[in-house]
């Protein structure tokens, strides 16, 4: 079957490992990876809401986990993943409207996503830690 449907013997484009990593391609795969990570992170969201429904003791268990070193590490990762996926998602929506597709604009928005996601993560944690102290 495969040989019957095979077209003329055209040259193949070089595979992924031939290309030099570029900002645009790295941001693209990071969008997928952060999306997958956030999908896993929804488990904590469901656990948290379920715990509030179950009562104060259940919520204490969630808070104990989230304030452990593993919990803080995971929340740091998920918060960055959220801001990254949010900002880069907005970048994708502009592309869907046909805006910002030129090379220069795509790089500028790419760096803006990198800087913006770090900045928003730092601001969010500064606000959250400020509330712990108060």
């Amino acid at each position: 079957m495969a040989s019957e449907t095979k077209g003329p013997n055209r040259p193949l484009s070089p595979h992924l490992q031939i290309y030099k990593p570029q900002l645009t391609s790295m941001l693209s795969i990071t969008h997928r990876l952060t999306g997958l990570a956030l999908a896993v992170g929804t488990l904590v969201l469901v656990w948290w809401i379920g715990a509030v429904a179950a009562g104060p003791e259940a919520l204490d268990d969630v808070n104990d986990f989230l304030s452990s070193w593993l919990g803080i590490l995971l929340m740091a990762g998920w918060s960055y993943a959220l801001f990254y996926h949010l900002l880069n998602g907005i970048r994708h929506l502009f592309w869907d409207m046909g805006a910002g597709l030129e090379l220069k604009a795509a790089y500028a928005s790419g760096w803006a996503v990198v800087a913006g996601s770090i900045l928003l993560t730092v601001i969010a944690w500064a606000m959250a830690l400020g509330n712990v102290g108060s």
Partner: peptide
Amino acid sequence: AIALVPLTLWFVVSVIGLVGK
């Protein structure tokens, strides 16, 4: 995606406000 832009921003800001409460 468009629906989630305001919804997640609102959720994150709200949850940060609930930290320590």
